[in-house]
């Protein structure tokens, strides 16, 4: 087998093994979105009415509306946790082993991002299957159609996480940054409320959400789950992948 393929496969295997060995991470990856879906969405169901808007062809329940946002949230958390593992590797010394490889660093980083994207996809699929149990029906072909969207979003958010990890010297600092990145990105997007509803309540908030690239991840996944393509969202996310990927590889700091 080609040396690059062997290397990629090993990085993928390591990330998957670590994910399944860290039970709390596995559990929280599934429980977190389910809590939002079952508890939060149930509570807001009567308060929030969602009118007909693309890609939906009829009135939908609030639970159904937030599922794409929760899929994006899973990707966001997983991507940031992958970056966290980079900080951990740097702090614990195992990053040195990665640097001793004769294989180019850009390929190693790309492999890490692909591995993180595969983990994100796995979690999204499990979440969607569980969502079906609470009467959120996503067409089965939506699962297939959403794969590229999930991958693209995972790449963008993973690269963003890598950029952030360059500025973090200790694990403790990373937790703080996560609070300043994950939550604002998630709440200031169309994950929980449609943008027109945000516009009704606050115009400046609406513009922040419009300029938040995470909004486009959510919308891209939302359309894909129903077999449609949101060209604008896809283009924005693709641009973010290219820019963040380039910056992440170019500015990667393997040392403390």
């Amino acid at each position: 087998m080609n040396a690059y393929l062997i290397c990629f496969w090993a990085i993928l295997q390591r990330e998957v093994l670590r994910f399944f060995q860290q039970r709390s991470r596995l559990l929280s990856a599934l429980v977190r979105p389910l809590l939002w879906l079952v508890v939060f969405a149930a509570g807001f169901r009567s308060a929030l009415g969602v009118s007909i808007m693309p890609p939906y062809e009829s009135y939908i329940l609030y639970q159904e509306y937030i599922v794409p946002g929760l899929c994006a949230m899973i990707i966001l958390f997983n991507s940031m946790q992958t970056s966290l593992s980079m900080v951990y590797d740097r702090e614990m010394g195992s990053m040195k082993i990665l640097l001793m490889s004769p294989i180019p660093k850009s390929f190693l980083l790309l492999s890490k991002l692909i591995a993180a994207a595969c983990l994100s996809l796995l979690q999204v699929v499990i979440f969607l299957l569980l969502a079906n149990l609470v009467d959120v029906e996503i067409p089965w072909w939506g699962f297939i159609y959403a794969i590229p969207s999930v991958f693209l979003s995972a790449f963008f958010l993973g690269a963003l996480g890598l950029i952030l990890s360059n500025f973090i010297k200790q694990l403790e600092n990373f937790a703080g940054v996560m609070n300043f990145v994950i939550f604002p990105m998630f709440f200031l997007s169309s994950a929980l409320y449609p943008l027109w509803k945000i516009q009704e309540s606050s115009l400046w908030l609406y513009w922040i959400c419009q300029y938040n690239p995470f909004t486009y991840c959510v919308e891209m996944i939302r359309f894909a789950l129903y077999g449609q393509t949101n060209i604008q969202a896809s283009m924005v996310v693709l641009s973010c992948v290219l820019v963040c990927g380039w910056v992440a590889v170019g500015t990667f700091k393997p040392k403390k």
């Binding site: 040396a3 062997i6 290397c7 390591r14 195992s94 040195k96 490889s101 004769p102 294989i103």
Partner: peptide, 27 residues
């Protein structure tokens, strides 16, 4: 290289650590 600070992945087995390192060298 053997570094002063241990660089093994504590959550993996001995074999997994060794095959991971080998794979980083294309083995």
């Amino acid at each position: 290289v053997v570094f002063q600070q241990t660089t093994l992945d504590l959550d993996l087995t001995v074999l997994q650590n060794l095959t991971y390192f080998g794979a980083l060298h294309g083995l």
